[in-house]
Design a protein around this nucleic acid. Structure first.
Length: 256
DNA sequence: AATATGCTCAACCGCAGGATT
DNA sequence: GAATCCTGCGGTTGAGCATAT
């Protein structure tokens, strides 16, 4: 049995808000506030709307301090910087922009900034730098080198994010850098219990999970533009492998 | 002018987690 | 400590508009 719905969908109005609905909600909130309960608010205010819908309408549109209209260059830069640091934590990013909501920032990112970033990557790839990360702990020793192969390209990788998750019980590393379409990954002397690797080419995100039983030493190369790339996320391709040989098999065709 | 395609953004959904009972 | 309620969040959807063919 699933979770009970927050309201009876057959008895509430859905879809776009009318100016009348907006006025009722705005007037009620200005007089009474939420009284700490959005769920009962629509009934008290005389609105045939779900409480969650009222909350969203107020926070994203009706609040007096909301800034409507296009984003400035400065705001774009803040979003790009924060996204590169913390990823899609839109509420945190929005909190750094006066009068912007998480929904606004998210929409702006999805429709404008992502494309802007990708366009800039195609130029910046020429100046990509190699990336090295070393992780050490008493039980775990792993050296990872990521080499960006510096070559201009028109191919697009749909993210600038490459994330590697170490065994969370020991250490955890997450880092991001411009992901070149041509790159070489070399991983040596990691200790593995359960091999699990996946690459999601629609997002450009790759993860590898390490545990602690078997030693291994391997090198993975994928060279060439990503043939799995699709501009539509609904057509995303997930390549999954349970072993290094499976993983290598998945990359046949990348290699020269 | 008609139709197809792409883009934007408001709104919805389900889930996680904190608060309350 | 368990169950329930409520809020806040990020992902997704789809109507309406703009642009291309």
């Amino acid at each position: 049995m699933g979770r009970a719905p927050c309201c009876d969908k057959t008895k509430v109005k859905r879809g776009p808000w009318s100016p009348d609905d907006d006025n009722i909600l705005k007037n009620y909130l200005e007089k009474n506030g939420t009284a700490g309960n959005w769920i009962s608010l629509p009934q008290k205010a005389g609105l045939r709307r779900c409480g969650k819908s009222c909350r969203l309408r107020w926070l994203n549109y009706l609040r007096p301090d909301i800034k409507h209209g296009g984003f400035t260059e400065e705001e774009d830069n803040i979003i790009l910087t924060l996204y590169s640091q913390i990823g899609s934590r839109w509420s945190v990013i929005a909190a750094n922009l006066q009068g912007r909501t998480d929904n606004d920032v998210k929409n702006h990112w999805n429709t404008k900034l992502k494309k802007k970033l990708l366009a800039s990557q195609n130029i910046n790839l020429i100046s990509s730098k190699s990336f090295t990360n070393n992780i050490n702990s008493s039980d775990f020793n792993c050296s990872i080198n990521y080499y960006g192969i510096l070559e201009p390209t028109n191919s697009v990788v749909d993210s600038n994010t490459f994330t590697s998750h170490m065994d969370p019980n020991l250490t955890n590393s997450s880092f991001q850098f411009p992901l070149p379409a041509l790159m070489e990954i070399q991983e040596n002397d990691a200790t593995v219990q359960e091999d699990g690797y996946f690459m999601d080419f629609s997002s450009g995100i790759s993860s590898s999970y390490y545990d602690l039983v078997n030693d291994f030493d391997f090198q993975v190369k994928f060279i060439g533009a990503d043939p799995y790339y699709s501009s539509s996320s609904s057509n995303s391709t997930l390549v999954q492998a349970n072993s290094i040989s499976d993983f290598d098999q998945s990359f046949k065709g990348f290699e020269n």
